[in-house]
């Protein structure tokens, strides 16, 4: 039903721009020329930054929770991770504007520029708001999801496997590595699910990404994402073509998250199913 509705409502824009819509980076409501490439780029890059930062940390936490921590510490930390997942995204965004962005502008970005300035990613003007800041916020937001699923997948691996590893004289890390290898498709699923979440995240990204439709190599530059352009322009869109174009952006977004989520469910399911049937 959702798909049908969005398909119908975006008809005008689809007829107008056909497939060129996703390959053109021009977005101008005055000239009535719409292309979504810069939003797609912004969404993908900010999500990838988030994933790149969140993945090792989440796996670390998941291992800590499922293999290492004592019960008291474990319940406290899992509770905190749950809260982290439950905080409304608007609060992340708000915090991003007033705490993270100034911090990025004054401390992190000048430092990165002076150390890694030779890479194009870290050149250009420093605004504080931009791709990198959005990526960091997203990383904070998707860590709890990846963590909790990875932890569940690790728990599904039988303890006897670890005992077998210990009995062969392996260290604790080597035993954990065994479990990780067994859980790898589940962890991949958790990662993909986190990616899907990052792609669809709206408010927090809108508030810190800078909202400028452009494609720049520098991660410090403001950018735009699919979800945030809808959030910003939908309520005051001028003309039916504009709305229709925005709905088409939504349709692309929905398609992407749909595929990603189905993939993730399938991967997680395959691990838990295999373990249940052993």
């Amino acid at each position: 039903m959702i798909i049908y509705e969005m398909f119908k409502d975006s008809e005008e824009s689809r007829n107008m721009f056909s497939w060129g819509f996703i390959f053109v980076d021009d977005w101008d409501s005055v000239k009535e020329s719409y292309g979504a490439l810069s939003f797609i780029y912004g969404t993908i890059v900010s999500s990838l930054i988030a994933l790149f930062m969140a993945l090792p940390v989440s796996i670390g936490v998941a291992i800590f929770l499922s293999e290492l921590a004592k019960t008291a510490i474990r319940t406290t930390i899992s509770f905190m991770v749950e809260i982290l997942a439950a905080i409304p995204s608007i609060i992340y965004g708000f915090w991003g504007i007033f705490a993270l962005a100034p911090f990025m502008r004054e401390t992190v970005q000048p430092f990165l520029q002076s150390v890694l300035g030779f890479i194009p990613f870290f050149q250009g003007n420093i605004y504080g708001f931009g791709m990198l800041t959005a990526g960091i916020i997203l990383a904070i937001m998707i860590t709890p999801i990846i963590t909790s699923i990875t932890r569940d997948v690790l728990r599904a691996i039988p303890v006897s496997q670890r005992e077998a590893a210990y009995s062969l004289g392996s260290t604790r890390w080597e035993a954990i590595k065994m479990a990780l290898l067994n859980a790898k498709s589940g962890i991949l699923g958790a990662t993909v699910l986190g990616l899907g979440r990052a792609i669809g995240e709206t408010m927090a990204v809108t508030m810190v990404i800078g909202n400028r439709a452009q494609i720049k190599a520098s991660l410090f530059e403001p950018a735009y994402s699919m979800a945030s352009v809808i959030a910003n322009e939908f309520a005051e869109a001028s003309g039916s073509l504009h709305i229709s174009a925005l709905i088409e952006v939504g349709l692309i977004l929905f398609g992407v998250t749909f595929i990603i989520n189905s993939l993730a469910r399938f991967l997680i399911f395959s691990v838990t199913y295999k373990m249940d049937n052993k």
Binding site: M1, M6, D9, T202, T257
Partner: peptide, 13 residues
């Protein structure tokens, strides 16, 4: 797993 903004568009339509 659907982004909440998509639900918003749906309700809008």
């Amino acid at each position: 797993g659907t982004p909440s903004i998509i639900i918003g568009i749906f309700a809008y339509g």
